[in-house]
């Protein structure tokens, strides 16, 4: 089953096109990520899919229900964990969960059972009766996700699930998200501006920039679209034949030689590397040092958009303008 399908989804705030004819599908049981910088239109897309705002044009279905014509049906089958922490500091974890249970019409006895189950899954059961104000950032986020699971949603929307959390906590949250998919079969639609998060967690990624989808694929295929890994070999000497020999190896795309260095662009470098070294040894060249660089999503983003995801210097003002305009429009 297709969990989410969007066709030319578009949202315009005044003169700003926040989301520009975005189309994609998310399959059941998948972790699908929207990767892009701030102001790219990620949250606006989530807001449309979760029925908070109406699209200017285009259409989308969530679990088969149209987001504009059947918003009530959509709300029954989705959960949302927004960017902000919305759990109530002054209530306990248990009370927060029970509040959500009531909002989703889960009968009380059933709700008690589910709260116990979900708190165990998220390893929060020891803190169930403590006020949320005593929780750490990571615990609050877990509780937030837990609250949006109480009605066993088919599709869970996670907007920047690890924003502002430290490295260990982020890794822990990723594990919880994987557990949810494995044990509850929930489909995840998430947004992130962290490369490593998209790479580690998502089955498929849509790279989004200025409201447009630039590419959709699995992280590994996106990375291999760059054309291969870069293998850098420091050698005793560089002569004509080694360049020719290296080029004949399977998967090698390009070889650049300079004084005592050979830089080889190669698909699946880890498999070709041993062959490269034996070629060099056969040619009487000794290898002093080897370094292999896997292409990261950073390079993918760079090649698709012509700029780095983090390096927003050149377009800082434009990004800030977009972010502010979108925030203002949806506040």
């Amino acid at each position: 089953m297709t969990a989410v399908e969007a066709h030319n989804l578009r949202k315009v705030f005044g003169e700003l096109v926040a989301v520009d004819n975005v189309s994609f599908t998310v399959e059941e049981g998948e972790i699908f990520g929207f990767l892009g910088p701030n102001g790219a239109g990620k949250t606006t897309t989530i807001n449309m899919l979760t029925t908070l705002i109406k699209p200017t044009a285009g259409s989308a279905r969530v679990w088969g229900y149209d987001i504009v014509d059947e918003p009530e049906k959509v709300r029954e089958v989705i959960g949302l964990s927004p960017q902000e922490l919305t759990v109530d500091d002054e209530l306990t974890g248990y009370e927060n969960m029970m509040l959500h249970a009531a909002l989703y019409h889960v009968p009380r006895d059933e709700a008690r059972r589910r709260v116990k189950e979900i708190l165990e899954l998220l390893e929060l059961e020891r803190f169930a009766n403590k006020k949320v104000e005593s929780y750490s950032g990571g615990m609050k986020k877990r509780l937030e996700i837990g609250c949006s699971l109480i009605h066993y949603p088919k599709v869970l929307f996670l907007d920047e699930p690890t924003l502002g959390l430290d490295v260990q906590t982020r890794a822990a949250i990723w594990n919880y998200i994987r557990t949810l998919v494995r044990e509850k079969g929930v489909t995840i639609f998430m947004t992130t501006h962290y490369m490593d998060e998209a790479d580690n967690l998502c089955d498929r990624i849509a790279i989004i920039d200025y409201g447009r989808v630039k590419a959709i694929d699995t992280p590994s295929r996106l990375k291999s679209s760059i054309g291969g890994d870069l293998v850098e070999l420091e050698v005793s000497e560089v002569n004509g034949p080694i360049g020719e020999k290296l080029r004949t190896l399977p998967g090698v795309v390009d070889v650049v030689l300079d004084n005592e260095r050979a830089v080889v662009k190669v698909v699946r470098g880890e498999e070709v590397l041993p062959a490269m070294i034996s070629v060099l040894i056969r040619e009487g060249v000794s290898v002093r040092r080897v370094e292999m660089k896997k292409p990261s999503l950073e390079e993918v983003f760079l090649s698709l958009t012509g700029r780095k995801l983090r390096d927003e210097n050149g377009v800082k003002e434009e990004i800030a303008r977009r972010t502010i305009a979108i925030r203002r429009a949806r506040a």
Partner: peptide, 15 residues
């Protein structure tokens, strides 16, 4: 509730 995002949570619930 609007500022903290709680209102959005209420609005995505089937209520």
């Amino acid at each position: 509730d609007r500022r903290l995002g709680v209102l959005n949570k209420l609005l995505v619930a089937p209520i």
